[in-house]
Design a protein around this nucleic acid. Structure first.
Lengths: 187, 187
DNA sequence: AAATTTAAGTCAACATAACTGACCTAATTT
DNA sequence: AAATTAGGTCAGTTATGTTGACTTAAATTT
């Protein structure tokens, strides 16, 4: 439409009667959210990356360990679909986690071709430690947003997921919630 | 709406009198937000990555082009601080953007050691195209969250930034808003 | 029962984006 | 004049991803 960045108080002339979208959806607000998302994610992952560097693991290991701990019994194909990487990429990282004793692979009982992934005790403990760091950060952010905002924030983040994958993601979350996996530090 | 497991309407029995922290800060909610953040960011960046692959550019190029377009005249040191990478890492990517005619470097007028980074016309156009994709995605997500939530979401994302950097990030956003840079698709 | 498909693993080569460490130039500050 | 700072550069390394080709074993289809 028109507006430069935020809203009013420019030359009032060319502002005209065009006000079709709610003020919160103007480019200035959207651009700020884009930028904040970058900074938020940079630090959200950076903290955990730093922790993992001590174990000579990287972000890729964390992602695998996280999803396996959160969804124990996850088949490899499902993990690939979540991470959107190739199985060759996964293989190296997964092997290191298995060799290190953080994850075990069990043949599936209904389909014995599958390798279902489970965290070991140590794997679960490590995952829980890292997740606790991230939960703390989220809790801080949530307090600043006002805890009432949690529902809206969840809707926002879910809305960022590509439509073709949104149902899948929601299913995953539902399944995990029903299972009560990785309940957290107090579990 | 979408919510996995939000709150009420479970068996009312085992809900008990333990409510020390606000219901929204329980581990289940925090873990869901962790997970949604991963999926949201995965797709938020994935869409743009796919676009850039056609130009044989990657996410690193996008980040540089984005910040230079959003903050024209950015000194190299400031960009390094934003991206939290080394200057050797930046060098390769920046060179490709300069060689490709997307970014120019001007010596600073007050401090002639500095190289201030500016987008070219083509650079600004490309940045704007990519940003428009991301704005659309954010707008969709914001509608699902309810546009009133924009303020809370901004507070949330800002709260995710590490405390030592939060003021710096807020300053950056303020400066850009005042400048009105990268006005959007119509600019 | 044989043929096909699927889940997973593996080997090899390669690309990108980060890293460390050492060193250089030019401009500014002390 | 000396020291510091902004930026650039060369060389080597690591982490994480990619294609493509091929294998095995289990399930499914014909």
């Amino acid at each position: 439409m028109s507006l430069g960045s935020s809203s009013q108080n420019l030359a009032p002339a060319d502002r005209a009667p065009t006000a079709p979208l709610p003020d919160e959806l103007n480019p200035g607000t959207l651009t700020e959210l884009i930028e904040l998302l970058f900074f938020a994610y940079r630090d959200f992952t950076g903290e955990v990356d730093a922790q993992l560097a001590d174990l000579s693991f990287g972000r890729a290991h964390h992602r695998v360990l996280y999803f396996v701990s959160r969804h124990p019994g996850l088949p490899v194909a499902e993990l690939l679909d979540i991470l959107k990487i190739t199985k060759q990429s996964l293989a190296r990282v997964l092997k290191q986690l298995v060799d290190g004793g953080f994850i075990v692979q069990e043949p599936g009982t209904i389909d014995r071709r599958q390798r279902l992934l489970y965290p070991t005790g140590e794997g679960a403990r490590l995952a829980s430690d890292l997740t606790e760091l991230q939960m703390r950060r989220i809790a801080v952010a949530l307090e600043r947003a006002g805890p009432d905002a949690a529902v809206a924030i969840r809707a926002f983040l879910s809305g960022m997921v590509s439509p073709g994958d949104r149902d899948h993601v929601d299913d995953l979350l539902l399944a995990a919630a029903a299972r009560g996996a990785l309940a957290g530090p107090d579990a």
